[in-house]
Design a protein around this nucleic acid. Structure first.
Lengths: 210, 210
DNA sequence: TAGGTCCTTTCTGTATGCAATACTGCGAAC
DNA sequence: GTTCGCAGTATTGCATACAGAAAGGACCTA
């Protein structure tokens, strides 16, 4: 018996397929085909699908199985502020002592982001690391769980966002300002810039939405 | 084929069993026994269990199945403020126009609570209706989903809370003050009282924790 | 040709079966 | 007396099997 349940690996794989569009928005998920393609039986696959549906990454249509929810600009407009507020809350609930150790590490990741931007690499992954680090000291696991559940939904809309290098540079600057504010112990500013960072991302997203 | 998947009904039933203690904290869930008792096969039961584990109402121990998480005072201390902030956020994101129609209905439910309190009935259900009504106009379904996921976790700790009639009366008063603030269009006060309502509940909870 | 009905096929939802692991109790060794 | 080891049982995790509902298409009707 594997130490990690099969359904966890499957959920991860399916999540990436939804995010990169191999499971396109609006498409139905064929359990038999997907199970065969992944080399597993339907049972653990369905277990993974149910978990993802509970998180909102899929929707369950009774009698018709699961399908990838269609893109909805309204949904994006609601997800970005939601993640923004949740992250800000996590930041407020992190003890100043714990926060004190973070700015240097945060700036190191921000440097990495800048390098990745020049090389034209994948910023999304580094950005995730930065935010993950920012919240890593938050003592409320349930809040972190909610954030972890919500971010993938948002990432579906993110593809266009990181397309613009101008915005990416701006975003990196905001990240540095957050780290600077934390260094000064100025939590309100850090939290405000954090929220603005997310909201601005949404604004750029709206621009080249298809 | 039933219009509602079996797993949904099962999830509901299991949730109530966890909340009322028929599935006690720390206990392992025996899939065969429970399936037999509920008159279903293990497959939809497992699907329900997995969904509940994703929401945190159960925990999955690889190779050992599912178990009801033990009570943890720290967890309660983190859940109450979390639900408080989430509800306050939902309130802030509801349009004032929509809110205007609520206070009368809210007070009606508050009256019901007072009546139930005198009769010594179950306040929890009425309280849920009140909060559900308060958030019913919030336009962000994802936030509502997070709240809906988190509240059951909190309700496990709530049993002792409603035991004290004094606190119950105080809480009803706070509910009325929230409705009054909404009537005045004073959202900050409404939101502040709402948060305090939850935090006070936590304070009382701590008192007669076993 | 448009629409409707019946039939076939496909797929989901649920049940059952199987193999491997985790638990339990007992006995033996120290 | 305690602890380790082992056998037997119980239970999970995954695979497969089956029944009934949807989807799709052919045929008939108007």
């Amino acid at each position: 018996m594997a130490r990690t349940p099969l359904r966890s690996d499957l959920a991860e794989e399916i999540t990436t397929r939804v995010l990169d569009g191999r499971l396109p928005a609006g498409a139905r998920v064929n359990e038999v085909h997907l199970a065969r393609e992944l080399g597993v039986s339907r049972t653990p696959l369905r277990e993974a699908l149910i978990g993802l549906a509970d998180r909102g990454l899929l929707v369950s249509a009774p009698g018709r199985g699961f399908l990838v929810p269609p893109f909805d600009p309204d949904e994006a407009r609601r997800l970005y502020p939601l993640v923004a507020e949740l992250e800000a809350l996590a930041l407020r609930w992190t003890s100043p002592l714990e926060l004190a150790g973070l700015p240097d590490a945060l700036d190191a990741v921000a440097d990495e982001m800048a390098g990745t931007l020049e090389r034209g690499g994948d910023l999304s992954e580094v950005d995730d690391r930065w935010h993950g680090l920012l919240l890593s000291r938050c003592p409320n696991p349930h809040l972190l769980r909610l954030i972890g559940q919500t971010k993938p939904l948002l990432k579906r809309y993110e593809s266009c966002y990181f397309g613009g290098a101008a915005r990416a540079g701006e975003s990196i600057g905001e990240h540095r300002r957050i780290a600077a504010a934390l260094r000064d112990g100025d939590l309100p500013t850090a939290s405000a810039v954090l929220v603005r960072n997310w909201v601005k991302a949404l604004a750029y997203l709206g621009k080249d939405e298809r």
